[in-house]
Design a protein around this nucleic acid. Structure first.
Length: 327
DNA sequence: TGTATAACCTGATCGC
DNA sequence: TGCGATCAGGTTATAC
């Protein structure tokens, strides 16, 4: 299931194989995959025909390719891709049969000089999506603003308007423990966040790139229960949690991401191997590798949470006091 | 204003 | 064998 490491693997593939190339044809096989496109499928097609892609970028699980029509111009728009639950971006030879669940097909030219002599340069970019939670759409690039969730201090000067609400992601080098602690434990208004810590780290407007798998993994490393009120976390807790999030994302990235089935692959159709390294997620009934307790699976937000009941104990109910509300 | 939840979607799996 | 129910989960809209 695509989270930050999987999106980054795909971004690297796009950057290597697609940037610098021009779109020759656009074929929307299933209009549901461009449902977020303003103006509908026709607008998507007319925006991309003849466009030349620049370097691929990403924030959290959103990735995008800025594009231009005039080689001398600066990109003002980007084609944004979100993989959702089951999206894949494949670069394939046009002679290969269409994959099942093919939704969008872009044929690309031979690319710039750096692609010359590359005998196996795939000619088609194919967006494949079984569950149709993902999609593609064109969005104007806007400056990242101070005060926006991922705004000041980011290394991305421009971001698609449609992704402007997404906060700085886990691997952004400019996160620091103090900023993270405040984002985790306080609302923008300054009031305490009383909601559970897992809900908060899944909120892409607080920190982006975390999904159900890596949330459970990071909480296991930090020995935190998913329902512990965020406002009760100390700076030590939030510091350990941030380190755990960064560490689990980096290690997953080194192994090409997490694949449980064929639903996540890189642009070459290859699976990642991080599923073998998971400590909590998907390990129901197996021993906790830290304390020997038995990992349990519990319903949470309409999905599942995995934890060790011994070293990630359920928080005791605490009466809310005036001191908690002090800003 | 902040939080919780339903809806979207398809294939695999399970029980009857 | 075939059918229906259930489950998986990221994002957004809606309800509270």
């Amino acid at each position: 299931m695509p989270e930050l490491p999987e999106a980054e693997v795909v971004r690297r593939g796009l950057d290597r194989w697609v940037s610098g190339r021009r779109v020759e044809t656009v074929d929307i096989v299933d209009a549901r995959s461009v449902r977020r496109q303003e103006g509908g499928p026709a607008a998507f097609e007319s925006a991309l025909l003849g466009a030349r892609f620049a370097a691929a970028a990403r924030r959290g699980k959103f990735l995008w390719l800025p594009f231009v029509r005039d080689a001398a111009a600066e990109p003002r728009d980007a084609v944004v891709t979100h993989l959702g639950m089951s999206g894949q971006v494949l670069l394939q030879d046009p002679a290969m049969p269409d994959p099942r669940h093919l939704k969008i097909r872009l044929t690309l030219d031979g690319g710039p000089a750096r692609h010359e002599g590359t005998s196996d340069l795939p000619g088609e970019l194919r967006f494949v999506d079984q569950r149709i939670f993902g999609g593609m759409f064109v969005s104007p690039l806007v400056p990242t603003l101070d005060g926006a969730p991922g705004g000041a201090g980011t290394d991305l000067p421009l971001i698609p308007a449609a992704a402007g609400h997404i906060a700085r992601d886990v691997l952004d080098p400019l996160w620091d423990p103090s900023t993270f602690h405040r984002a985790l434990t306080r609302l923008p208004s300054g009031r305490p966040r009383t909601t559970g810590v897992k809900r908060v780290i899944l909120d892409q407007a607080v920190i982006s790139g975390v999904g159900n798998i890596y949330a459970d993994e990071a909480l296991w490393y930090a020995s935190l229960h998913y329902d512990r009120p965020a406002s009760t976390l100390t700076r030590t807790h939030s510091g350990i949690l941030l380190e755990a999030l960064i560490d689990v994302m980096r290690r997953s990235l080194e192994e090409g991401g997490t694949s449980f089935d064929s639903l996540y692959v890189n642009v070459n159709g290859e699976s990642g191997y991080f599923a073998r390294s998971l400590q909590a997620y998907g390990r129901e009934g197996r021993d906790c590798l830290r304390c020997g307790g038995r990992i349990v699976r519990e319903p949470f937000m309409g999905r599942s949470s995995y934890r060790c009941p011994r070293c990630q104990r359920r928080p005791r109910l605490k009466k809310f006091t005036a001191a908690d509300a002090r800003v």
